[in-house]
Amino acid sequence: MKVLLFAGLAEALGAREVELDGAPPANVGELDARVREAWPALAPQRFRVAVNQRYARDDEALAPEDEIALIPPVSGG
């Protein structure tokens, strides 16, 4: 499953997207835990998960074709 990265998270991994290996996580909470485990540089970071360009809750179910992004604390304006 492809995961999009932005700002400090992209810089921490040196990539704008990463591929999460293995079976797609069932929900957002599982995805959060899996990416923190797969990339230790993400483990201490603060971010929310967006699914198909909307902020998602931990219990939201995921489908393999969903567009997943990790959203660090925003700082526009």
């Binding site: 700002a7 400090g8 967006a50 959203i71 660090p72 925003v74 700082s75 526009g76 304006g77």
Partner: peptide, 10 residues
């Protein structure tokens, strides 16, 4: 906007 919109400043 500053709390919610996914835009980041460096």
């Amino acid at each position: 906007l500053k709390q919610r919109v996914p835009i980041w400043k460096k």
